[in-house]
Simulated scan of single mutants.
Amino acid sequence: MTWDRIKFWGMLVVFAGLLVLSIVSLNTSGVTCGGQDMHAGDTCITSGTVRGQDEQASENGGRDWIGVAIGGVGVLGYAVYGAFQLRDRRKKA
């Protein structure tokens, strides 16, 4: 297996993993702050920013959608790239 194929499959796995983890995270019902579950009345303090439970839920959801977008575009892009590479390799053979 050539180095280019290893890079291709490695990046495809990374983007697919990001896509799956983001989708799973979107479907979780709990709100977390630094890996800890938040409950009503809790505040989340990260990087000098203080957020309530509702604000943190919105922040978490936004990050998850960004992960879905990046993962989806990455998987789609690498799938198209792989299809073109396969086509070119078959033409040469």
Rank of each mutant, 00 (worst) to 15 (best):
D4T: 02
F8H: 12
L12V: 01
Q36N: 09
K7N: 07
W65A: 06
T43C: 01
G52C: 08
S58A: 15
G48V: 02
G41A: 12
E59Y: 14
S22Y: 04
W3T: 05
M11R: 08
K91Y: 02
N27E: 12
V24A: 14
E59D: 14
K7Y: 04
G67I: 09
G52I: 03
G41W: 03
T2H: 08
N27L: 13
M38K: 09
A57P: 01
L76P: 00
I6Y: 11
T32A: 03
N60K: 15
Q56M: 14
I45A: 10
S29G: 13
G35Q: 06
F8L: 14
G77P: 04
G82W: 15
V13G: 03
R5A: 06
R90F: 08
D37K: 14
G67P: 02
W65V: 12
L26R: 14
E59M: 10
Q85Y: 02
K92I: 11
G77R: 09
F8R: 10
L18W: 02
F84K: 12
R89F: 11
R87N: 10
L12F: 10
Y81G: 00
K7I: 04
G67Q: 05
G82K: 15
I23N: 10
V75F: 06
I70V: 15
L21S: 11
E59R: 14
K7V: 07
Q56R: 13
A40N: 09
D42Q: 10
I6W: 09
E55C: 07
G30T: 13
A57R: 15
Q85G: 12
I66S: 13
F84R: 10
L26I: 07
A83D: 04
Q53T: 12
G71W: 04
T2I: 01
G10V: 00
